[in-house]
């Protein structure tokens, strides 16, 4: 896994070089943007020199920070797909018990673009999806297919072509913030349990 930085700067580009480049790019921006850049540069350069969490690539596409990976995908809807998916999401009304059981998904969003012709699907999840694709295909076949069959050419979660289909529409995020790259969904549940028990203990002795 080759490290991949967010902005893909030229190799060996110093912070000073990056600042020079930014000033050139902002030269055409409105005055308030230029002022904002100058006001922000102090803070930007101080953490620019020491990144908080290394951003790496996650599998074939997408990026990863610590234990968390991102997947962003824009795929065309199949005819009638947008209406089907919208009705399905409305029925679910925010309920994703099946996703809870996967245990590695931080969030998912479904955004309909360009007059219901394309789906933007974005998610943050732990580790890599690739090793688990066969498990999903076996254990949550219908849950996957009922959603993604809304997209054109979805080969079915059980198809050997499904990995290629995902990668075909996946776009690596240029920028991405993760508050706790060191915590998985299961870590967070664990910390919540420990925190609750600790509070109860403190209540008893306090």
């Amino acid at each position: 896994m080759a490290p991949q930085t967010l902005t893909r700067p030229k190799q060996n580009q110093t912070v000073e070089d990056k600042v020079q480049q930014l000033r050139r790019l902002y030269a055409d921006a409105p005055q308030y943007a230029k002022t904002a850049l100058e006001n922000s540069l102090g803070e930007l350069t101080s953490f620019g020199s020491k990144p908080r969490a290394r951003v790496e690539s996650a599998g074939r596409t997408g990026s990863r920070q610590g234990k968390v990976s991102e997947l962003t995908m824009i795929a065309p809807f199949a005819p009638g797909g947008a209406a089907r998916l919208r009705a399905l999401l409305q029925l679910r009304d925010g309920s994703f018990d099946d996703t809870d059981r996967v245990g590695t998904v931080h969030d998912m969003r479904f955004v309909f673009l360009d007059n219901d012709t394309k789906l933007l699907f974005a998610t943050a999840y732990d580790g890599e999806w690739d090793p688990y694709i066969d498990d999903f295909a076996t254990k949550i076949t219908d849950q996957m297919d009922v959603i993604f069959s809304a997209c054109e050419g979805w080969p079915g979660i059980r198809s050997p072509k499904v990995k290629d289909w995902i990668v075909k529409y996946q776009i690596t995020a240029e920028g991405w913030y993760v508050a706790h790259p060191d915590l998985t969904v299961r870590d967070i549940s664990h910390v919540k349990r420990i925190g609750k028990a600790a509070e109860e203990f403190l209540d008893k002795i306090g």
Partner: peptide, 22 residues
């Protein structure tokens, strides 16, 4: 190999997340 030896080695032997063990 990918979903047998490699899966067991990477997900179950050298990680603890699947059992909420970090």
């Amino acid at each position: 190999l990918h979903r047998q030896f490699e899966f067991i080695q990477s997900q179950w032997v050298t990680d603890g997340n699947f059992i909420s063990h970090g």
